[in-house]
Amino acid sequence: MMKEIETRIKEVVKDLFTQNKIDLFIGYSKGSLPLTSSPCFITKSEDIEKLVWNSFCSNNLAVYLPRIFNPQPRKKEKIELPRIGILAKGCDARSIVVLIKEHQIARDNVFILGIVCQGMGDRKKIRNDIEITGAEEKNGRITIVDENKKEIELKREELLSDCCIECQHATPPIHDILIESGNQRPAAPKGGGRDFEKKSIEDRWNLFQEEISKCIRCYACRQACPNCYCRECFADQTKPRWIGVTDHISDVMFYQIGRIFHQAGRCVDCGACVRACPMGIDLRVFTHKLVRDAKELFDYEAGVFLEEGLLLATFKPEDKQEFISEP
């Protein structure tokens, strides 16, 4: 299946270039390590062969769009916007919807090649005592080769990322062409901090503290998130200064709470921040709380409907009032 999709992608991209519909295509190429792939920017049809499609095309490619459309620093003269083709799984496409709604993308200038996603793998799910020297994917099975050239066969399902296991939107809600990928995976309602939520308040706090104390404020999470396109992040501002420039855990917490809260109604649960974090912090335990609450309290899912207002700019008469303390 994967190979067929890959071939189909290449065909489509080829057509786009030959018909001069795009100036740039964003997809995936082979990564430097086994079981990875990297984002790849194609500007001419000769390079199309670099494109790949496999179970590790995890990156949320939407992150590049605001940067291309809104170069920093702001240009005085009006710039000619490039026409971009982009490969979009469910989550990438939802990010694109969010970004269109937030005026960060010129819809007319993007061609969305949607793929019904079967879920992406997470390398971290492989036992970490194995040193992977090679890997091959075939028929829903992944064979890895360890340092002793021993082949280990794994089921694709076992490697799925947490966010993919729970994903409810494998089909891109917006696309110009859609590539089907056979049967749908049933979404499993687990993870995402739900176990965490069951813990006592003290345990939660301790875990939060423990996780956050790993954070080195490298901002890789912010860099990876398509929503973090602010021209000047609150974390960097000086007038007023929201966060002290120290590595005091309270300041780190402030950053994390602030950044994550800023994703309310916008986070599409793509897992980009989790994958980006060099310290292995499972940010999803926190980000997913807001995703869940948006749905439970306001029946709102980010990036699903283009026409829907923004979660934090709208309200309904039936909005729950449970946060109110009655005397």
Partner: peptide, 25 residues
């Protein structure tokens, strides 16, 4: 210099006092 033109404030303002300036967005 900080505004990315996301339009959130525009949608929120009950008095339609904010607009998106098309040129610089």
């Amino acid at each position: 210099e900080r505004c990315s033109g996301c339009g959130l404030c525009i949608e929120i303002c009950p008095y339609t006092a904010i607009e998106l300036e098309e040129g610089e967005r």
